[in-house]
């Protein structure tokens, strides 16, 4: 079973994603912010992270830099599921993928639960 850390600041969306990903067979652990997510990641050692970039206080990008600074977490795949459109990254999109280990980028307003579950399943299967 894939151990998935869901980082989502909106409580209502978090609950919907939690149910959909649990139904897809993941063990989902939820954190609303970056600081808590680091603590949770330390405890559960996730196989995969689904991350919103717009968080309160510390952004998702700050979380990614913090995460990748630990040797144990350098290879944990991250799927971004965000209200920030990927076009806003322009040239730094490659950095997200190559340096920060982002395996997929979903623009939240136009991605469905099906899309999210498919992206998670793709990563989970590739790790088997």
């Amino acid at each position: 079973m894939t151990k998935l850390l869901l980082i989502e600041p909106d409580r209502m969306l978090a609950s919907i994603y939690f149910d959909a990903l649990s139904a897809a067979g993941c063990e989902v652990i939820y954190a609303a912010g970056a600081q808590l997510a680091i603590l949770v990641a330390d405890q559960i050692q996730p196989d995969l992270i689904v991350l919103e970039l717009q968080l309160i206080e510390h952004s998702g990008i700050e979380f990614l830099y913090e995460l990748r600074s630990y040797a144990d977490w350098q290879k944990v795949p991250v799927i971004i599921n965000s209200v920030v459109p990927p076009r806003e990254f322009n040239n730094s999109y490659k950095l997200l993928k190559k340096e920060l280990g982002v395996v997929d980028y979903l623009y939240k307003p136009s991605s469905t639960l099906k899309t999210l579950v498919a992206a998670v399943n793709k990563v989970s299967l590739s790790k088997v």
Partner: peptide
């Protein structure tokens, strides 16, 4: 965008 996303995903969740 937020309430629209919430409503759309709630509807999808019920359907799925």
């Amino acid at each position: 965008k937020l309430p629209f996303m919430q409503i759309a995903r709630l509807a999808e969740q019920a359907e799925l």
